[in-house]
Amino acid sequence: MEINGVEIKDNYAEAFEIKATRLLVTAATKKLAKIAATEATGYGTSVIGCPAEAGIDCYMPPSETPDGRPGYVIMICNSSKKKLDHELLERIGMCILTAPTTAVFDMLDDADDKFKTGFKLKFFGDGYEEKLDIDGRTIHSIPIMSGDFLVESEFGWKKAVAGGNFFIMAKTKMEGLVAAEVAVDAIANVKGAITPFPGGMVASGSKVGCNSYDFLDASTNEKMCVTLKEKVAETEIREDVDGVFEIVIDGVDEAAVREAMKQGIAAACTVAGVIEINAGNFGGNLGAYKIQLQDLF
């Protein structure tokens, strides 16, 4: 199968279940909202080593937010409900409450259950906190130096899907980089999906386990390393490919991940120099979701 002359491999991305929250961070200006959202989603690329997977989902204009101010929707994910509860409390408390003029609202409509995050944070008000109703939401108003910090009392979480992915294989590194950036921009338009790695792009694709060292749970994916294609017998990189980038996607459900993969791949295939689109999987040993690349189109 080909799209714009780019080969779409007969392969699948192996995704797995994760638990996710989806929240809206608003502020007095779009710039301040973006700063707070970025801080709250930091150190959140992969649960292999990070305490959560996190990223910015989409921008929401003032006309669509509960408090009539600009905001960004973010997602925070973890495989453990207990750890996700902790991460939500820490990231809102340390990264958003501390940011100028912010407020935080729950944005998950179909939650499996809820965390009492805002209820816990209200005690920072030392007895001066107040309870408000904004757009039918229970909000805690916490006095801080710059005014009042507003946080919804409860935040929903649900079973979601992590690890959707595809590899962009290009003639050169720069052509692959351009294609990856174009793909990430396209995915940004899919609500309910995030690309948690830096700039949405993965430079260091990994595999489960390690061939040489038994103390590592994950290590470099040597079959997809451009500098090893002449050293590794099982390399999956063509001779004419010198640029490889992976895009990893988390979503509120499988449909969101599939749509993000579809839009990202289609966008990447418009860039000159892109030769092939592939995907990463672990032979069915990691996750229950097997998203066939060719079935997306």
Results as ranks from 00 to 15, higher is better:
14 E>G: 00
101 T>F: 05
8 I>G: 01
31 K>Q: 14
28 A>N: 15
60 M>D: 10
114 K>Y: 11
149 F>N: 04
68 G>E: 01
215 F>P: 00
98 T>Y: 01
201 M>F: 12
85 D>K: 09
250 D>K: 07
154 E>T: 10
185 D>E: 15
262 K>A: 03
239 E>T: 13
119 F>W: 10
288 A>P: 09
232 V>H: 01
270 T>S: 04
274 V>M: 00
223 K>N: 07
62 P>M: 07
289 Y>T: 15
153 S>N: 04
31 K>W: 11
41 T>K: 07
183 A>S: 15
28 A>D: 15
185 D>H: 13
155 F>R: 00
79 S>H: 12
268 A>S: 07
92 I>L: 04
206 S>P: 08
204 S>I: 12
278 N>V: 04
208 V>T: 13
123 F>E: 13
244 V>I: 08
209 G>W: 02
59 Y>W: 07
236 E>Q: 07
238 R>W: 06
26 T>I: 05
30 K>Y: 09
141 S>W: 03
31 K>V: 13
203 A>R: 12
90 E>Y: 11
106 D>I: 00
67 D>M: 05
135 D>S: 14
295 D>N: 11
47 V>A: 12
125 G>E: 09
107 M>S: 13
163 G>P: 01
273 G>I: 06
90 E>L: 13
256 A>K: 10
171 K>G: 10
259 E>M: 08
17 E>R: 15
215 F>Q: 07
267 A>D: 09
6 V>Y: 00
275 I>V: 13
53 E>R: 09
147 G>R: 00
125 G>W: 02
79 S>R: 14
117 T>D: 08
240 D>H: 06
221 N>S: 06
288 A>M: 13
237 I>A: 02
47 V>C: 12
239 E>G: 13
258 R>I: 05
71 G>Y: 04
261 M>Q: 08
69 R>S: 09
125 G>C: 01
72 Y>K: 01
228 L>R: 02
156 G>I: 02
43 Y>R: 15
83 K>E: 15
204 S>L: 11
51 P>S: 11
295 D>T: 08
266 A>C: 15
92 I>Y: 04
10 D>K: 10
180 A>F: 01
206 S>W: 09
56 I>T: 11
55 G>F: 06
105 F>I: 01
213 Y>R: 11
146 S>A: 12
176 G>H: 03
242 D>E: 10
166 F>K: 00
201 M>V: 15
23 L>S: 10
30 K>C: 08
147 G>H: 00
200 G>H: 03
101 T>V: 01
